[in-house]
Amino acid sequence: MEAISHAGTVLGVLAKDGVVLAAEKKVTGKLLDLSSAKDGGYGGSGEKIYLLNSNVIGGVAGLTADANSLVNYARTAAQRHLIMYNEDIPVELLAQRLCDMKQGYTQFGGLRPFGVSLLYAGYDPHYHFQLYHSDPSGNYSGWKATCIGANNGTAQSLLKQEYKDDIVVKDAIGLVLRTMSKTMDSTTLTSEKLEFAVLTVDPVTKQPKAKIYRPAEIDALLVSEGLAKKDEDTEMKAA
């Protein structure tokens, strides 16, 4: 629990036509090799936001090593459901699968629990778009908008003030980015400190579409939302 409150913030907002997820990266620096995030793969730099299944994106806060193990478990659980039922796993069921395992580690002696909280942004035909949160004890709950990690209290009260029940993805993206910029330590948002993902349904195929943004796409988004670095800053750096 302690580790999670210091971890990078992960924030999720449920909209009418999609779910938006954003996360603050902690491991940064210009020596970090980010070549895999720029091209190749499905986007993201693999620190906070992961594709769990074609219909679910996960955001993690806490011990990174534990998170990797949980992500692998979630992916396997989703594939096990696919093999048994020939359908994408319902979002709540995937959250339950992870919580069943997390709970087990609180009950049996000799082992420590997973030090990870997760946000699940997903879609299934039963309840459409959904956002869940699970904590190390194995509790989970559904949310319209929520936040885990450092400063989650501040973020939640901001979300509570600004959230509207009929919010659409376009506005949810703005809400998420504005809230992120207020809760993060740094003054300006950049792709160096941010991971970002949106889950929607493809209007043609009617299949869920998980999009994890690449660094360049995040910067472009920040510019269009008017949250990018001011021009003076770049000029000063150049000088």
Binding site: R80, L82, I83
Partner: peptide, 17 residues
């Protein structure tokens, strides 16, 4: 088909290609 899909999806999601 189901078994191969399982192994293939795990390959794709871990390899990211």
């Amino acid at each position: 088909h189901e078994r191969l899909r399982f192994r293939l999806n795990m390959y794709t999601i871990k390899e990211e290609r």
